[in-house]
């Protein structure tokens, strides 16, 4: 399993792929960083990193499908899927190895954003406790999105289609919150609470406000686990059914 994990990481870092995406992410992040500095009013010299993170997730979430699109789609396209599936590795381990490698790239990208608070701490004060909390939330939400991106990649043999489907699903995940907040849904309180429960954005808000709730931790982790299991099953199912 480690061999596959290593190979996946190499495919990200031996090519410009991971660096370009990390640079893109940093670029977007720095724009919102600069704009929140320029928005500073004359009476309060405060801006909040959690807010920047919160805003950035809406951009970042669209980078994830690009990160995951090739994972399974390219294996199928290049015929290397045979190599993996005929190796002694189980499908579960294959999926986990791929998942963990994307998570590692994700951590690398999160690491690059540390530059901004460290920079800010030179000329001001940073509330590290709330920042750590928002990092945890960012990471957890990312896990779910990565799992979803991988699942979509395993459903098709074409990386581009996987990416486009991924963008649609990410958009759907974001829309869930707006949907839950709409007047129509709010007029049915029970339905609203169900939709709201699934809205990841609402849960992320707690993290960005510096609140670490066990409920949210369990929600994100179990959501990621469910999608990973779905991924494993979908690969198994495709082998067993006709193609």
């Amino acid at each position: 399993m480690f061999a596959l994990y290593k190979k996946e990481l190499q495919s990200f870092f031996y090519s410009p792929f991971a660096y370009v995406l990390a640079a893109l992410f940093m670029f977007i992040f720095s724009i919102s960083f600069v704009s929140s500095i320029s928005d500073l009013g004359s009476n309060t010299l405060k801006f909040s990193f959690p807010n920047i993170f919160y805003n950035n997730f809406f951009y970042f979430i669209f980078i994830i499908p690009i990160l995951t699109m090739r994972s399974f789609a390219d294996e199928r396209k290049g015929g290397t899927e045979v190599l993996l599936l005929t190796s002694p590795l189980s499908v579960t381990k294959i999926v986990l190895a791929k998942f963990l490698s994307v998570v590692t790239v994700f951590l690398f990208m999160m690491l690059t954003t540390l530059f901004f608070p460290i920079y800010a701490s030179f000329s001001g004060q940073v509330m590290w406790s709330s920042l750590i909390c928002v990092y945890i939330g960012f990471f957890l939400w990312g896990l779910v999105c990565i799992a979803a991106g991988l699942l979509l990649s395993s459903l098709t043999g074409n990386a581009i289609i996987a990416a486009v489907l991924g963008e649609i699903v990410m958009e759907g995940l974001l829309f869930l919150d707006t949907f839950a907040g709409s007047a129509l849904v709010q007029s049915y309180p029970k339905f609203n609470s169900v939709v709201g429960w699934f809205s990841m954005q609402r849960r992320f808000v707690y993290f960005s406000q510096g609140m670490f709730r066990l409920e949210d931790l369990i929600f994100f982790l179990s959501a990621a686990a469910v999608v990973i299991c779905w991924n494993i099953l979908s690969i198994e199912k495709r082998r067993w059914s006709h193609r």
């Binding site: 061999a3 596959l4 190979k7 290049g78 015929g79 290397t80 190599l83 993996l84 190796s87 002694p88």
Partner: peptide, 21 residues
């Protein structure tokens, strides 16, 4: 179809498969 990764070098690929197995 030989199951090879076009982006890998020959030796690197062989070592990867050895690890996989």
């Amino acid at each position: 179809i030989p199951p090879v990764y076009p982006d890998m070098r020959v030796e690197e690929y062989m070592k990867f498969v050895a690890g996989l197995k």
